[in-house]
């Protein structure tokens, strides 16, 4: 009983802390937290592919963008659309796109997988840029209505112009997404996934269909990228090709994941936090984004390929070795 409480205590503390963020930090940092949550979910969804299945995608922005554009278009053209259907349409667009793409990409891995995604993402980017009559071209879509969060007959909170309310909405949706993804990695299917990463051939010989399993992970990953994109679209109240489909949007979750560590579930969350801090601090003094990103990539892959969580694990291990030695010396 006490053990159980001990396990839940940190989470309860975290939830309470998150609940009080708007009171403590004020509006500016609310934006910071929402952006953080969005990209944490986006990065974890990428890590389902990268860390858990061993597939590097240079075009995950596709699904972020699909979520964003799906929701934005729905809100623009469907009159009085409630909040949750708007979110669902975003997720569905991402899933639909993934259903189209996945038969083409699950056959391959490695370099071909990465490059195919770059190709498809670029195609989508160019299409969004050129089909001005639907997507608004370079300027994108903006100023669509943000529906209130309401349970009919019970409560209704406006989200437009109420950052604190939006913060709660975003935290709940994104928190739930994180929990679902975490659960997903803990299921028997999650085990097959890591098996594929380690040794796809053997998984085949153990009687699991590798391509089917890859396709499922792929669609799940796309769905959660869609959640992130959808929430972000409602948060910013604008979607545009550069911010949702550009190459840098595909790179951001890779940076976050590499920084935080691909080998752990929460690695990308740490990575998102670290990168957000880097952005907050370094980009006050310099606007040389490429140099900073380049240095991060090179340093991390060369000296800490398992990122922040890898380093922590190493430190923990060293600390344990040190303690053991001390104990042995004492004895």
């Amino acid at each position: 009983m006490i053990d159980k409480m001990k396990r839940w205590l940190p989470w309860a503390a975290l939830i309470i802390a998150l609940a009080f963020v708007p009171k403590i930090f004020g509006i500016y940092y609310m934006n910071f937290f929402i952006t953080f949550a969005v990209f944490a979910v986006f990065s974890v969804s990428l890590n389902l592919l990268l860390g858990y299945t061993g597939l590097l995608s240079f075009g995950h922005a596709m699904y972020f963008g699909a979520g964003g554009y799906g929701t934005a278009l729905a809100l623009k053209y469907i009159w009085n659309l409630p909040l949750l259907p708007a979110l669902s349409i975003g997720i569905l667009s991402a899933v639909l796109l993934a259903l189209i793409v996945c038969p083409l990409v699950v056959r391959v891995g490695g370099t071909a997988f990465a490059m195919m995604h770059m190709a498809f993402a670029q195609l989508l980017y160019v299409i969004a840029l050129k089909s001005r009559f639907i997507t608004g071209g370079e300027d994108g879509l903006a100023n669509f209505r943000i529906p209130p969060f309401s349970i009919p007959g019970v409560v209704s909170f406006p989200l437009e112009g109420a950052p604190a309310n939006f913060y709660y909405f975003a935290i709940i949706v994104l928190g739930a997404s994180l929990w679902l993804m975490w659960f997903f990695t803990k299921t028997p299917f999650g085990q097959i996934q890591v098996g594929i990463r380690d040794n796809a051939k053997r998984i085949d010989y153990l009687g699991f269909k590798v391509t089917h399993a890859k396709a499922v992970v792929y669609i799940v990953s796309a769905a959660f990228a869609g959640v992130a994109g959808s929430v972000y679209a409602m948060f910013q109240n604008v979607v545009a090709p550069d911010g949702y489909l550009g190459l840098l949007v595909s790179f951001t979750p890779i940076i976050n994941t590499m920084l935080g560590g691909i080998a752990s579930f929460f690695g990308p969350v740490w990575g998102t936090a670290i990168y957000a801090l880097i952005e907050e601090i370094i980009f006050r003094y310099t606007d040389r984004v490429e140099l900073v990103i380049g240095i991060i990539f090179v340093l991390v892959i060369m000296y800490a390929p398992l990122g922040f969580s890898g380093l922590m694990l190493k430190l923990k291990f060293k600390w344990m070795m040190f303690k053991n030695k001390r104990m042995r010396q004492a004895a």
Partner: peptide, 10 residues
């Protein structure tokens, strides 16, 4: 047990 997404394997 292959495509089971609803139970924790542990």
């Amino acid at each position: 047990v292959r495509f089971n997404f609803f139970t924790r394997v542990d």
